[in-house]
């Protein structure tokens, strides 16, 4: 097990290295001089030269990369070109809201999607199955922000149950936090629920046809035990996989949802940085999200053996 995890960790190094090279080249090879963007229109050639010198833009490309990557490894993510603050501090300030919303989203999604998928498979080809499948196709078809605006219109403007936008951290009071976090979480959860419910249903349909399910039923095991203990555990691996790969969808969704609901998280930070061409922040954020994605999928792979003891590493 330990050796397996170590091996997988080592295997992530080339992936993240290529991401780093890619991000580096993406920004360096685009038309436009970063120094000119940074200095503004009124800059003199001497000022430009000083900025280039400070950022190391005069060095050959490979030296720039080695310097930059070395700093990254030491945990120095650089300084924002716009606000002149340390990128690591910026990320740390903005991480809280995003993590809180993401965790709430995952809890809501799994709590809704897994039972939905199980019931759809159990009542295969009935109206329940049809309703679950319709919801899941619909969830893929409506843009995240449209869902957000519909929820705002219904629950914040018409019913006035919750505030329209904004964010409060759990330390400001649980009620304040929930009333502001519930709509963004539901918005984000829609596509995730669609994805997980669909996979749960497909995986359960396969398992429910197995002999041991019939045996369990024949010896009089209660139906909910058959479904959730016997069948679901055996159907768990594809569901876990889709939760892991769907994490990329969640990250993308965070970016949009934070803009809709005006939440000061890392999604907003990234979009603002990209639109302002704040290179150090863009690089750090893309590397960070890629790193998170790779790690989540590593954890998912390792957790297989927890659900299915036949899988050993």
């Amino acid at each position: 097990m330990f050796v397996y995890i170590l091996k997988r960790l080592l295997a992530t190094i080339p992936v993240l290295l290529i991401v780093a090279i890619f991000v580096f080249l993406l920004l360096r090879l685009t038309p436009g001089d970063p120094a000119a963007i940074l200095a503004g229109d009124a800059a003199t050639p001497a000022q430009l030269e000083r900025i280039r010198d400070r950022l190391g833009l005069n060095d050959p490309l490979h030296i720039q990369f080695v310097t930059w990557f070395g700093q990254m490894l030491k945990g120095d993510l650089g300084t924002s070109l716009i606000s002149n603050t340390d990128v690591l501090d910026m990320v740390r300030d903005r991480l809280g809201p995003t993590i809180n919303i993401a965790v709430m989203t995952i809890i809501i999604s799994v709590a809704l999607a897994v039972p939905m998928g199980v019931i759809a498979a159990w009542r295969h080809r009935t109206w329940i199955d049809f309703a679950v499948m319709s919801f899941s196709v619909l969830g893929f078809s409506v843009p995240v922000f449209v869902i957000g605006y519909i929820l705002i219109q219904v629950f914040a403007i018409e019913l006035r149950w919750v505030p329209v936008q904004g964010y409060a951290s759990p330390s400001d009071g649980i009620g304040a936090f929930f009333s502001r976090a519930i709509l963004p979480s539901l918005t984000l959860a829609t596509i995730y629920v669609a994805l997980i419910a669909r996979m749960t249903r497909a995986s359960m349909l396969e398992v429910l046809g197995e002999d041991y399910v019939r045996t369990a039923r024949a010896k009089g095991v209660r139906e909910n035990v058959v479904l959730f203990r016997h069948a679901l555990r055996n159907a768990a691996v594809p569901i876990l996989t889709i939760i892991g790969t769907g994490f990329a969808l969640l990250i993308s969704g965070v970016v949009v949802t934070e803009s809709v609901f005006n939440i000061p998280g890392i999604g907003r930070l990234t979009v603002d940085a990209i639109l302002a061409r704040d290179y150090p922040v863009i690089q750090a954020m893309i590397l960070l999200t890629a790193g998170i994605y790779v790690m989540v999928n590593l954890i998912v792979d390792v957790s297989y053996s927890f659900f299915d003891p036949r899988i050993r590493y």
Binding site: V15, L16, I18, V19, S252, T270, I274
Partner: peptide
């Protein structure tokens, strides 16, 4: 694999 590790939306807006 590396390209797939970057969230599609971030890559596209960049």
């Amino acid at each position: 694999d590396s390209l797939m590790a970057i969230p599609a939306i971030l890559l596209a807006i960049a």
